[in-house]
C-alpha cells in the first residue's frame, strides 16, 4: 500500500515537464525515505536523478519498498489534467499493475481519479559516488537557460570554463563563435540572483547543448541552478526543489577530437 499526498501538486507537474523529453520510461522507487527516480536517456549519455523526500509530503505512507514502472509521456498527460493549485495524491496497491493519481481542487469541490497502467522496465541503476568537484557554479536558473538557448543557435556544443576570472560559456558554429562570461556577483538584492563560483582549480569541459537545453526544462522548479564540474566526471546540473529534494542531471563530457 502506497499513498503519497502532495499539497503543492504543481511540483510534480513541473518535475514531469522537466524530465519527460529526456527519458521515455522510468521506474519510480518508493521507500520510507522518499519517492525517487534514476533513469538514463536512450543513448546512455545523460541521466536524471529525482528525489522527493517523505517529509515534503503532507501524508506519506509506503509500507514496503516499491518500484513502479511508468511511461513518462503518459504520466505527463495525466498530470496535465491536474490544476496548478490541486493537491495530488499518488496511490498504489501491492502487486497492482496500475497507479492512481488523485487530484483535489483547493476548495475540495472537485475530485478526480486517473488510473494509469504500469509497465515492466528493465532499468540499469548506476552507482554515483560522492565526488569532489574542481568547480561549482551557482547561478540564476533563468540565466543558465538563456545562455544555453542563445548558444544553441550558434553551435552544437558548449565549452564551460571556470577560472578565477569567472565562468565562460563558449560555442562555435558555421556562422561564427560566441563567448559569454559571468563573473562572481554576490552584491545582489536577492540571494537567488547571485552568481557564486567556488573553484578549487580551473576546469574546462565540452558538452552537447542539446542535452543542456533539455535540462533547462527544469528551470521553473528552482530560481537557482548548481553546476558541478570536474574533468574525468560527468557534469551535474542540479535544481533544488524547495523543502523536498532535487532534480539532478548528469551529462558525460565530450572528448576533444
Amino acid at each position: 500500500m502506497l499513498e503519497l499526498r502532495l499539497v503543492q501538486g504543481s511540483l510534480l507537474k513541473k518535475v514531469l515537464e522537466a524530465i519527460k523529453d529526456l527519458v521515455n520510461d522510468a521506474n519510480f522507487d518508493c521507500s520510507s525515505s522518499g519517492f525517487s527516480l534514476q533513469a538514463m536517456d536512450s543513448s546512455h549519455v545523460a541521466l536524471v536523478a529525482l528525489l522527493l523526500r517523505a517529509e515534503g509530503f503532507e501524508h506519506y505512507r509506503c509500507d514496503r519498498n516499491t518500484s513502479m514502472g511508468m511511461n513518462l509521456g503518459n504520466m505527463s498527460k495525466m498530470l496535465k489534467c491536474a490544476g496548478n493549485d490541486d493537491i495530488i495524491t499518488i496511490k498504489g496497491d501491492d502487486g497492482s499493475d496500475t497507479v492512481t493519481f488523485m487530484f483535489e481542487s483547493p476548495t475540495q469541490d472537485k475530485i478526480a481519479d486517473f488510473e494509469m497502467k504500469l509497465m515492466d522496465i528493465d532499468s540499469e541503476h548506476l552507482g554515483i559516488p560522492e565526488a569532489e568537484y574542481q568547480a561549482i557554479v551557482t547561478m540564476p536558473s533563468s540565466e543558465f537557460a538563456r545562455i544555453c538557448k542563445d548558444l544553441a543557435s550558434i553551435g552544437d556544443t558548449v565549452v564551460i570554463s571556470v577560472t578565477k576570472e569567472g565562468v565562460k560559456f563558449s560555442t562555435r558554429g558555421d556562422i561564427g563563435t560566441a563567448n559569454i562570461v559571468l563573473r562572481q556577483n554576490t552584491t545582489v538584492d536577492k540571494p537567488e540572483d547571485a552568481t557564486v563560483i567556488e573553484m578549487n582549480e580551473p576546469v574546462s569541459l565540452t558538452f552537447a547543448l542539446r542535452y543542456m537545453n533539455s535540462f533547462t526544462k527544469a528551470t521553473s522548479l528552482s530560481n537557482t541552478v548548481k553546476i558541478s564540474l570536474s574533468s574525468e566526471l560527468p557534469v551535474v546540473v542540479e535544481y533544488k526543489i524547495a523543502e523536498m529534494g532535487y532534480v539532478r542531471f548528469y551529462l558525460a563530457p565530450k572528448i576533444e577530437e
Partner: peptide
C-alpha cells in the same frame, strides 16, 4: 559523434 562517451565510462552499474 563518436567523441561522446556514455555514462557507463564514469559510473558503474549497480
Amino acid at each position: 559523434a563518436n567523441n561522446q562517451p556514455k555514462l557507463s565510462a564514469f559510473f558503474t552499474l549497480k
